[in-house]
Write a protein that binds this DNA or RNA. Structure first.
Lengths: 172, 172
DNA sequence: CTACTCATGTAACCAGTTACATGATTCA
DNA sequence: TGAATCATGTAACTGGTTACATGAGTAG
């Protein structure tokens, strides 16, 4: 359901071909919901069959430009305002923490140091991304920027937590 | 790969049957990596076929008690110390934020208020969980507790972020 | 005319969910 | 003896990944 909505959402912002969307997935949405090429083309056909999007123009090389339909927009708004039916969150990283007791203390500490370092480098990457984008005054950019800020805060929290746990291990 | 390691990890902590593990999945691991009954039984058979676990005893009603093998333990440790091959993180919640621009401002604000409220109630739930568990002095409990602390910090961050964004919307 | 990018699709596979199916043991 | 719990499994379906396949237009 979520890839479907990610695709529909990108088309709600701007129409485009599968190829266009693929680049927008890689560029802006990869941090939030990655998608592969084959998955995307399949989803576009399903969305079109369901009447949520439609082909608005055919270009060279069999290019199909899609746009969202009114039905599609209704469906998108319904999904955004209805967080109930989300898939459960899974985190391999947290699972690893959960099982860290199977490792000797010094290896566990090592892992946490690496985790904190990774969070720090993610923050650098996100800050670079932030300053590389010419943010406009649109709602689209307001929320894109907010998602980025979320990532910054998330990684900061993770680094702090890793340091806290490292200390807790040392006190034993 | 991750469910495989979650299962292996639980068996590394204590041996048990599929039925036992299922309850432990529901009780302690559901917040980190949920699993269904049919998935678990399938995985146990695959793990046994691969020699990572073995049946240590057969009980009434066809009960098969599993334990981890030395090969299994090696493989588990390899996985814990090697965070490279994790599946990408996906967040339906963040995807929704990304697409919040498709909604009128007041509806977006409403959504963020609900999100903050949900984070707050999650914190309450986790705190109750925390005080309901008779924590021991073992490593297993140290890291289980740390995972819970992670959840608390994560939800606190989320609530703060939602308030921050609500204010940013108001200033437009 | 050659290499590159644009452009779409299919097939095989792994992971996860829901529903169905079955039977043994225990406890009131 | 009937209900609850213990215990394991299969089948059908959806979502996601990797690899393969193909061809049209474009720029040097």
């Amino acid at each position: 359901m979520s890839l479907r909505m990610a695709t529909l959402g990108l088309l709600a912002q701007h129409p485009g071909s599968g190829y266009d969307l693929l680049k927008r997935f890689e560029k802006s949405m990869a941090n939030v919901w990655p998608a592969t090429q084959s998955q995307l083309y399949g989803e576009l056909n399903k969305l079109a069959a369901a009447g949520l999007i439609e082909v608005s123009a055919i270009g060279p090389r069999g290019r199909k430009e899609y746009r969202i339909t009114p039905t599609g927009r209704t469906e998108l708004e319904r999904w955004i305002t209805n967080p109930a039916d989300d898939p459960p969150e899974r985190s391999a990283g947290l699972l690893r923490v959960f099982l860290l007791g199977e490792l000797p203390h010094d290896q566990a500490r090592e892992h946490l140091t690496a985790l904190a370092a990774h969070a720090d480098s993610e923050m650098v990457r996100l800050k670079e991304l932030e300053s590389s984008i010419p943010w406009s005054d649109t709602d689209e950019d307001l929320y894109g920027h907010a998602a980025l800020e979320y990532g910054l805060r998330f990684n900061a929290m993770q680094a702090e937590w890793a340091h806290w746990l490292t200390k807790a291990i040392d006190n034993r």
